[in-house]
């Protein structure tokens, strides 16, 4: 497989628009999350503009909520950097896993695409890659759609205040989990993959209980990857003709 499989990886407008369209249903929920963030940010003392800027520039929900916990008359800088890095360190591994798909793009397109990589467009892009799709529009198109939804949600939140105060009441907090789980189940190609996944699950739980906060995703992902490295090379990723 190696070199030839992504030889004609490409990024174009049609693929990007298609990625935006495929992400649209999930964007409705992202707007709700953004709204919750906007409300929480203003309650926490950020100005409207600061809340919007954070959503636009950081674009990483969990770490933004965590930053609110640190916000006060003074912001502890080291803690802010450490928590932002720890929560977002999974991006390092997610990006690495897409590298074989993106490597033939011009570096500028590659690094631009990464600036909008988030959990859900990554999961859908990784699925495209697994199925042999060469057009990388899902990553950037889905990312742009999520970014717009996140920004719009934040704007609604800072403008209209306390709309949804208890998102868990309506099951909103589990949406992301269900979405990611459906991607995971849909992407399973063989039963042997359950071995590294079990290792990842156990390692993540160990990290939740005994390692520093927010380390579980990285610990679990690395443990799963190492376990997968030890498997025999039966991995045949048959790629469908094209799409």
């Amino acid at each position: 497989m190696g070199h030839s499989r992504s030889a004609d990886a490409r990024l174009d407008l049609a693929g990007t628009l298609d990625g935006m369209r495929r992400m649209a249903p999930l964007c409705l929920f992202v707007i709700a999350f953004g709204l919750a963030f906007g409300v929480a940010a203003v309650q926490r003392g950020l100005s409207e503009l600061e809340a919007l800027l954070m959503s636009a520039l950081v674009f990483a929900g969990a770490s933004q909520f965590a930053a609110l916990e640190l916000w006060g008359p003074e912001i502890p800088l080291v803690a802010l950097i450490a928590s932002t890095f720890a929560i977002n360190a999974r991006h390092l591994l997610m990006g690495a896993s897409l590298y074989p798909w993106l490597r033939d793009l011009p570096p500028r397109q590659r690094y631009l695409s990464m600036s909008v990589m988030s959990d859900s467009n990554w999961a859908m892009a990784a699925d495209d890659y697994r199925r042999g799709v060469r057009n990388v529009g899902m990553l950037i198109g889905g990312g742009i759609a999520l970014w717009l939804a996140w920004l719009l949600g934040t704007l609604l939140g800072v403008l209209f205040g306390s709309g949804i105060t208890e998102p868990e009441r309506y099951g909103l907090d589990v949406i992301m989990g269900c979405f990611l789980l459906s991607m995971l189940v849909g992407g399973a190609r063989s039963l042997t993959i359950l071995i590294p996944w079990s290792v990842a699950a156990i390692a993540a739980l160990i990290a939740v209980y005994w390692l520093p906060p927010h380390s579980h995703v990285v610990v679990g992902a690395l443990a799963g990857g190492l376990a997968g490295m030890g498997l025999p090379t039966e991995k045949k990723r048959d790629r469908e003709p094209t799409s």
Partner: peptide, 18 residues
């Protein structure tokens, strides 16, 4: 490559399990 393939699903497993 085997590491990356196993890791990419494991990220999701590690997010969801807890």
């Amino acid at each position: 490559e085997r590491f990356i393939n196993a890791m990419s699903g494991s990220v999701l497993v590690a997010v969801i399990t807890p």
